[in-house]
Amino acid sequence: MSANHPVISVTGSSGAGTSTAKVALEHIFRREKVTPAIVEGDCFHRFDRYEFREKSKEFEAVGKRLSHFSDEANLFDKIADLFKDYGEKGVGKARTYIHDDEEAKIYGVEPGRFTDWRDVGEGSDLLFYEGLHGGVEEVLPYADLLLGIVPVVNLEWIQKIHRDTEMRGYSPEAVVENILSRMHDYVHFITPQFSNTDINFQRVPLVDTSNPFIARDVPTPDESVVVIRVRKPEKWGIDFPWLSSMLHDSFMSRRNTIVVPAGKMMFAMELILSPIIHELMEKKRKG
């Protein structure tokens, strides 16, 4: 952890909604005049798209499954190295995973491949990491603020099924098979991170999602609440009575937990995180 070069990490599963946290933090960075070095976690996958397919076949041949959730398919040590090096020097190593043709034009690398490793962070105020494994054990000594985005699992599955069928062209059966094939790794590599996070934002539907595999619609924000748990409120100076007064229809469910309407999730994030980011920047400026 470093006062001079703070590291903020957002962790969450595929389809969990980490993009909401990214937008909220971008708003805060803009107001605070913060220049972040942004790193997406998929650049730390061990295999590119084509290598992953071949490795998956090798695993299947011996009765095993390979998933993007597991340690076998990711470079946890490289994430830790980035956090550590950035905290010490303000610069670290990362690369970019090329998702589509638009990114291919920018980087000159075909979709599904990685760019070369390069230095990132020069001239930045802090490191902002977003990905699947931002809270694994290897990175914990080096993260200044660790955020978890984790809808209840049935909602997460509904969101993934709808996203992958409507936006990525997969069949519902293929998406369900993908969910099942990753379940062991989800339990062992994704969920344990949320015991390590400083603040969790968990969206909970208020409609029946008991069978996520037949749900026709993703529950809307009006049909959901967000449970926000702060592991050490005193460390971050969280004023829950003030938050309750600012967030209409919110309530405290435990001494370190506030429940807010899901439509106010981004507003809640900005209210909670703005003072924290400001304090991190003040410490940085004072050296």
Rank of each mutant, 00 (worst) to 15 (best):
I161F: 00
F267H: 12
E177F: 01
K283P: 00
D119I: 08
K264Q: 15
H162I: 01
S274N: 09
L75C: 07
E32G: 04
Y142S: 02
T35R: 12
S70E: 15
A37L: 00
L132Q: 06
L206A: 14
L132T: 04
D185G: 11
V136D: 08
R118Q: 14
N4D: 07
F251H: 14
H162R: 08
R254N: 11
I38R: 09
G108K: 10
I79L: 12
G108N: 09
P212L: 11
G41Q: 05
R182D: 00
S13A: 15
P241W: 09
D222K: 09
R95T: 05
G263I: 10
E32S: 08
R255G: 05
M183R: 13
R30C: 10
G15N: 04
N200A: 12
G15Q: 01
N74T: 11
V176E: 07
R46S: 09
F29T: 08
T220F: 04
V187R: 14
S67I: 03
I28Y: 09
D71Q: 13
G121E: 02
F52E: 01
G135F: 09
R65Q: 09
I272K: 03
G148F: 05
L147R: 06
E223Y: 01
I28F: 11
E51A: 11
E60R: 13
K232E: 15
T96R: 12
E138Q: 15
T11E: 02
V152K: 08
E223I: 01
V207D: 12
V175K: 00
V218I: 15
F76T: 05
R163F: 00
L280R: 05
I149W: 02
K64V: 04
A61Y: 05
F83H: 10
I190H: 01
G263F: 10
E282L: 13
T115Q: 12
E103C: 11
F201G: 06
T18S: 12
R31Q: 13
V139K: 08
H99E: 11
F29Q: 08
S19T: 14
S274K: 11
S195I: 07
Y142P: 02
G63Q: 12
E51H: 06
K57F: 03
V136R: 14
E51Q: 15
L146C: 04
E58G: 03
S244I: 07
R49S: 13
M183W: 14
L247R: 00
T115I: 07
H27E: 10
H278R: 14
G263Q: 10
